[in-house]
Design a protein around this nucleic acid. Structure first.
Lengths: 243, 243
DNA sequence: CGTCCGCAACTGGTATTACCACTTGACCAC
DNA sequence: GTGGTCAAGTGGTAATACCAGTTGCGGACG
């Protein structure tokens, strides 16, 4: 294992994670109040500004509501949290949440083809050229981690070409959830990123400016791995239910 | 105009907004450094903890990178920001950004039918019952604002039934961008929320457990207003280009 | 007896200050 | 050149005090 940057966690980070866990695990239900900032600081053995920073970040994520003079209350995160919370929900307590992973795959399968269609409408030949270069790099390596990186690059270019900020932000959010686990997911994604031919077909459709063909080609890139992974996940969660 | 709750803005909120604006408006390009916390506090006439809170929130949104001992640098928000930034980008300096609005509409049209299809697979008859109640309320009023609220409720139920956390979080993020402008958008959305018959067809398809029909019905609900609004937006931005 | 005013006693909001920890770069010894 | 050292600047954390709201209790007044 190569040397890695040391993971330095600040005090507010730690507080944030602890309070976040309490909320998403339902230890403190929606509508209930958090202890006061002073109390939290005392219990956690940190200063009040540190607690404040963490709570303000919680508020920004719409997980709690702080009211001047009143108590800080927990909100229903399933109803208010945004897509930026995905990384924290996908892997909780070091374990992958199968239901969340399934929904990531479903969303990817639904959104990817739509983005490809938009890219076909708006990309043009120069896009096809750099996409081809990326697919060449994808096809030119045997390492599944590298392949994933190139596949991400590929989709990054497609999303750029789609010229749609919302899809771009969605992509960023999902990449933020995906990248930390990229190495662990290498075997799972090998099936998909090994199909360089499918990426070439998609590139051709986008270059041809044909949205419908691009949509279908994107589906063909994403669907096989999506379906086999979802099957694997249900087997996994069924197995967990037995424990 | 009815009395409204006074808009209380805290100091860190204000700082956050100002720094955010500098970043998204490109005043401080990606890779450049922000002034030090002490300097910012001095320039803005606020305390350093206030600046810190704002900067930490910027970091959480992945808009800046703070390094202990080093400078705080701006990141390329188009590449790193998540969907939670959408509200800030949709309306900037009090004006609606036409390109962003267009992409919201495009994303809605792409995602809505996929969610409806999932809901059809997983919802069952009890879902159809409460959806029908919601459509009844939608059809029972002439007020476009109320209709929008009921339409949001409708989609909220559909998203719930789709049982997919990612779509739920996407919906929450987009609702957070949409709701503040709900009243202003009433005329624009009147065409869509007035078509209660289309909602009924969608409800029937979902209740019947037929994903493909549900997908098509959802498209029929969303497409007309989407296309006419996109047309209106391009006319609007063409007009702005003339100024 | 009920209403309402007003005063604690909470809560979060902000500022000040001091000091610790880390990074950077310049300078110097080897 | 290489490596060490040090000073200056940066963010990280804490302690403290006070301001500014909210809440609820109790007493004064009708």
């Amino acid at each position: 294992m190569p040397l890695q940057p040391v993971n330095r966690r600040s005090v507010p980070d730690e507080v944030f994670d602890q309070v976040l866990a309490e909320v998403v695990d339902g230890e403190i239900g929606a509508g209930e109040s958090l202890p006061s900032e002073r109390r939290l600081a005392e219990v956690l053995g940190v200063s009040r500004p540190a607690v404040r920073e963490a709570l303000q970040r919680m508020a920004q994520t719409r997980l709690v509501e702080v009211r001047h003079g009143g108590a800080t209350t927990v909100r229903d995160f399933k109803r208010f949290a945004g897509l930026d919370l995905l990384p924290q929900l996908l892997v909780r307590r070091g374990h992958l949440d199968a239901a969340v992973a399934r929904s990531v795959l479903e969303a990817r399968l639904a959104v990817g083809p739509a983005v490809a269609a938009l890219a076909a409408e708006r990309g043009g030949p120069p896009l096809a050229a750099i996409l081809t270069e990326t697919v060449d790099r994808l096809a030119g390596t045997d390492d599944d981690v590298e392949r994933q990186v190139h596949a991400l690059e590929f989709w990054d270019l497609v999303v750029d070409a789609a010229d749609s900020l919302v899809f771009r932000l969605m992509f960023n959010s999902m990449r933020a959830a995906y990248e930390p686990a990229l190495e662990a997911l290498a075997p799972a994604m090998a099936e998909e990123v090994g199909q360089s031919e499918a990426y070439r077909l998609l590139t051709a459709a986008i270059g041809a400016g044909d949205p419908d063909t691009a949509r279908a080609a994107a589906d063909r890139v994403l669907r096989p791995a999506t379906e086999s992974l979802i099957a694997a996940l249900s087997a996994l969660s069924a197995q967990e239910d037995d424990e």
